[in-house]
Design a protein around this nucleic acid. Structure first.
Lengths: 367, 367
DNA sequence: CTGTTAGCGCTTTCAC
DNA sequence: GTGAAAGCGCTAACAG
């Protein structure tokens, strides 16, 4: 017992499939006022559900928008996904989701799959990577994307253009001012913190991580401070934890000549993590080694992940309107509201530095 | 410049479209060894991408699996989504995502949309609701789902059967032992806590919430304790926060005759939240009112959300293998691995009670 | 093993 | 305003 078709509905209503189509799904030609009712009744009685695949086939578009993320369970990506989903709903489209673990190779197959499904547009949320080992995959990815674009697809990218892409006109990259905001964060921190800074970064070649690191260093320079040491680790909580463990040893070691714990502002470093989850991981590790935040170490993250908002000490970070980014990437140039949105990049919602407890320098006591 | 078609490839290779189809996409008949190469080359040179819509149309299946969640940015759902995504990948399918804010009405349109797209199966992750105002929507939802099933669709549901569904054979509900685990949690808590218990619940009629509440009460009874008072609020962080605010007043008020803060085990209630995010919200509110956990109030959650793992004090909760649940719901009876998985419900991965710092009764000091 | 012939379910000129 | 016919891109019988 398969789903009923348009022709069946038409037959039941005693009209041609063409007419049935016209009333059930919009058309330029408005069908007869009372014949329409007959069709609608027939459709209802047969509980007719139009076959989107067939519709898509003839119109050669699918009403699908594809989203590519590293990991949907990562709060950073799920926030973006929410925005993309909202945009999709506004346009009456559905969301196709692909996860890639951040590897360009898997991104490539995702794009191919989306292209095969004739997705109307695709959004790439994950950070681009230019690590040498990803070179080939990146080339394939950009080739796949360019082809998709040439065939009429639109692609929205967050943060960075796709490496090696050439069909620029159909890419819409939403600008994420990582470097500027990172610099700004450090600028504010430098005013209240007199000790050293230390950067907790992701693997080299991860563009988002690199941008933020560059911003941190730039901010330091602007404040008249020397560049900070960079500790490289995984771009996730686990990476932050691992790094936190070694850092704890260093901090404790460097202060061993005192009471086993460093004291005074001079001995207390400020860790600049390139994202919130790494910062949280580091905090967990530092604590497990007996250190306290912000007493023994200051720390700041990046992203302002919502689920982490009740974390204590409250994490200093850079708030990013992730959901809006997602919406923007999905909407692309499609925005038909206000007439003049020439300065596309200009309209992107900015982030905001949030200084909170984890970088408070006055309170030397408490957790 | 549109995408190239199979016929174009065939023509370029000098073969019939049928043959081209046979080599490019699997078929029973193995095509000629060297003619195959010609086709493959032609396909490559035209950068041919098969049209999944056309394929789906003729095979009347789409390779799509639909997932319905309340909110993809909620860590509970994003964990499930990861599991469903993994299952989809294993089966070579793609994931269609719909969000509904938990309203049966929107679930209904999502199901219709999935049906229209001829999704091979659909997974409903959100809690079912039997609130009176949802009655009509529920009826429509189950009608829509039953129709989808009758047309050959499979549906996986988490936790509870869809209210009013009748085509039972094509539903696969993955059993979430909410009540049992809730009772178990309380059982363990009752052994170490001698004060009162208080339940922080969601709106009445939300099945997941109701189950957990019932479990809590059952556990209390089993421990020889009276039923706990139930505070109803929203099933999310905001709900927890609001309730926490009023609870704080009560707790402080009840102890005002002492030092402004309750002291001793007797005065300290244990809050049983029906999920982690509510518990976290409540903790935030209690803290903002100057109360400390677990010194002044014990609290436990439910779900064991990963992103909350570094929260301090560590939250006592019930660990649920959310990702596995998602996988199971998506795989349904499709599992072809081991021969005898008769006791389907029996194989579902169980949850586990996790007693942590937030319900520690010995430490009366510290945050 | 390959090519020919029908459609899958729907939309859309084009006549009526 | 309505119907007839052609075809979207692909696969699945059939023949050859």
């Amino acid at each position: 017992m398969s789903a009923s078709t348009l022709s069946e509905v038409a037959r039941l209503a005693g009209v041609s499939p063409a007419t049935a189509s016209r009333v059930l799904n919009g058309s330029a030609r408005t069908p007869g006022p009372e014949i329409a009712e007959r069709v609608r009744q027939a459709a209802a009685s047969l509980s007719y559900v139009p076959n989107a695949q067939a519709q898509g086939l003839v119109k050669s578009k699918s009403g699908l928008i594809g989203l590519i993320v590293h990991d949907i369970a990562d709060p950073y990506f799920s926030a973006i996904a929410r925005g993309v989903q909202a945009a999709a709903r506004e346009q009456g489209k559905m969301l196709l989701l692909a996860t890639t673990n951040g590897t360009p190779a898997e991104e490539c197959v995702a794009v191919a799959a989306f292209a095969a499904r004739r997705a109307d547009s695709i959004v790439i949320a994950g950070s681009r990577s230019i690590r040498p080992e990803d070179k080939n995959s990146n080339a394939e990815l950009s080739a796949e994307l360019d082809r998709y674009c040439r065939n009429g697809g639109r692609v929205g990218v967050m943060g960075h253009p796709v490496v090696g892409a050439s069909a620029h006109e159909c890419y819409h990259v939403v600008n994420v001012p990582n470097e500027e905001l990172a610099a700004e964060l450090v600028g504010k921190l430098a005013k209240i913190h007199s000790g050293t800074f230390l950067i907790l970064g992701g693997p080299e070649g991860l563009l988002t991580s690199d941008d933020r690191i560059r911003g941190y260093q730039r901010g330091l320079k602007a404040a008249g401070l020397p560049p900070a040491e960079i500790v490289r680790t995984g771009f996730d909580r686990a990476g932050g934890y691992d790094a936190g463990l070694s850092l704890a040893k260093r901090i404790l070691g460097g202060a061993r000549h005192r009471h086993g714990v460093p004291q005074g502002a001079e001995a207390r470093p400020c860790i600049l993590a390139v994202n919130d989850v790494m910062a949280i991981g580091a905090v967990a590790a530092l604590r497990s080694e007996g250190l306290r935040i912000p007493r023994d170490t200051l720390i700041a993250g990046f992203d302002d992940i919502e689920t982490l908002r009740d974390f204590r000490p409250a994490l200093s970070t850079v708030h990013l309107p992730l959901e809006d980014f997602g919406r923007l990437a999905a909407l692309g140039g499609t925005s038909g509201g206000s007439a003049d949105n020439e300065a596309e990049a200009g309209t992107t919602p900015a982030g905001r530095v949030m200084l909170r407890r984890s970088t408070e320098t006055r309170a030397l006591s408490q957790t």
